[in-house]
Simulated assay, not measured.
Amino acid sequence: MHPDVIADLAELDTTLKTVESVLDVEELRRRIDELEHQAADPELWNNQDHAQQVTSELSHAQSELRRVEELRQRLEDLPVLYELAEAEEGAAEAEATADADAERAALRIDIEAMEVRTLLSGEYDKRDALVNIRSGAGGVDAADWAMMLMRMYIRWAERHKYSVEVYDTSYAEEAGIKSATFAVKSPYAYGTLSVEMGTHRLVRISPFDNQGRRQTSFAEVEVLPVVETTDHIEIPDGDVRVDVYRSSGPGGQSVNTTDSAVRLTHIPTGIVVTCQNEKSQLQNKISAMRVLQAKLLERKRQEERAQMDALKTNEGASWGNQMRSYVLHPYQMVKDLRTNHEVNNPSAVLDGDIDGFIESGIRWRMRDQAEA
C-alpha cells in the first residue's frame, strides 16, 4: 500500500479507538445484556412508561454497538481491498484501487460522524427533540420558507429512520405555515438538533411575486428537549387556561367537524401552546401539555444560564439572528454563519442532507464552550 494510505488508515484507527473508548464497548455489551434480561420479564409491561424506557434504551444501545462494530469491521477490511487491487493489473487495478479509495473516504465520513456523537454529553442531549418552526419577516415567502424548513427536518429524520410526531401545524392563508411543532423521537435527537436553533434566512426569486423579484425571508427554529417525568415541571391547574376550537387546514374527515383542537395558555408567563393533530380533544390536550412543559423547562434553563452568564466577564458566541443563509439566487449556496461550513447544493440540503451542518455545529459549540 502507498505510505499515504497506510498513514490515513492509522489515523482512522486512532479516531475509532477513541470512539470505542468513550462509548466503552464492553460496558455497552454488559448494559445490553442487562436490558435484554429486563425486556424478557413478562411483568415489565405492568408499568408502560418504564417498559417503553427500557425498550427504547435497549434499541439505542444495540444500534450504537452495531454501528461501532460495523465501522471496526470496515476498517479491518480496507487493507484487504487494497491488497486485492494490487493483485490486479492495468485498468482492473486502477478500478479496484478507486473503489478502495472511495470506501476509505466514506469510512472517514462515518467515523467522524460517530466521533461527533461522542461529543454529546449535555444534561438533556440524550432526549427526544421538540422542534418549533415559526415564519418571520417576509410575508407569504416566509410562510412558505417555514414549511420548506419543516420538510427539511422531517426528511432528515426519515433518512435516519427516526420517528416524527407532528403536534400542531398552523397554516398561512395563501401558502406555507405560520408555525409548526413536531417531535423527533430518537436517542440524542435533542443533542443533535439543538445546534439548528436560530434564525434561518432564505434568498430566492419569489414564486409569489408576478414581477419575479428577489425576496429575502426568515424563519425561526426552536429546539427543546422533550420533558421526562424526572424533570419536576409542575403546572398548577389554576395557572393554565384551556380553550377548545375546531381544527383548521388540510385534513381528513375529522377536521372542522368537532371542537378537538386545544389551546393552552400559561397565565403566569403568557406562553401559548396549541395542538390539533389528534382526533381526540384529550389526546390534543396531553400533547399540548407536553409542549408547554418543554417550553417551561427551557425557560427555566435559560434563566439559570442567564444567571451564570452574569457571572462571566466574557459571553460566548451568540446563537442569535441569521445563523444560516440559504441562497438560491443569484448563486446557489447554503452557508452556516457560525462555522463557515458551506454547500453549493441547496436542493440536497433542503431535501434533508444536513448532517455536515449538524456535525460542524456540534464541533463549533464544543470549541465555543471550551473557550468560554
Rank of each mutant, 00 (worst) to 15 (best):
E83Q: 14
T258Q: 13
S247Y: 01
R263Q: 12
E112D: 15
I233W: 00
E83Y: 08
V240D: 02
L78Y: 00
N345L: 07
H60C: 09
T230V: 10
N132T: 10
V54W: 03
L58F: 09
E57W: 02
R134E: 09
E196M: 05
L23E: 04
E88M: 12
Q307A: 14
V244F: 05
S56Y: 07
G136L: 01
V223L: 00
Y167C: 11
K285R: 15
D128S: 11
K185C: 08
A180R: 01
L71K: 04
W145E: 09
S194T: 10
Y171V: 05
K178T: 05
P346R: 04
A96R: 13
Q332Y: 07
G138Y: 05
Y245F: 15
P225I: 00
R66P: 00
D41Q: 05
Q369E: 14
I205H: 07
L16D: 02
Y124F: 15
H232N: 15
A370V: 06
E228D: 11
G212E: 11
E26K: 14
Q322E: 15
E76D: 15
R201C: 10
P3Y: 11
L202R: 02
E220H: 11
T229W: 11
D41Y: 08
M152K: 04
L71T: 05
L120Q: 03
A137D: 01
L119M: 13
S217A: 06
M289Y: 07
E43Q: 13
D99L: 15
D77F: 03
E115N: 14
T118W: 11
D24Q: 13
V262R: 01
D4H: 12
A96E: 09
D125L: 05
M152W: 12
M366T: 12
T313S: 13
Y331F: 14
I235C: 04
I205A: 05
I177V: 11
L282N: 09
A317Q: 15
R363T: 09
Y188A: 01
V244Y: 10
R305N: 04
A113F: 04
R213G: 07
I235W: 00
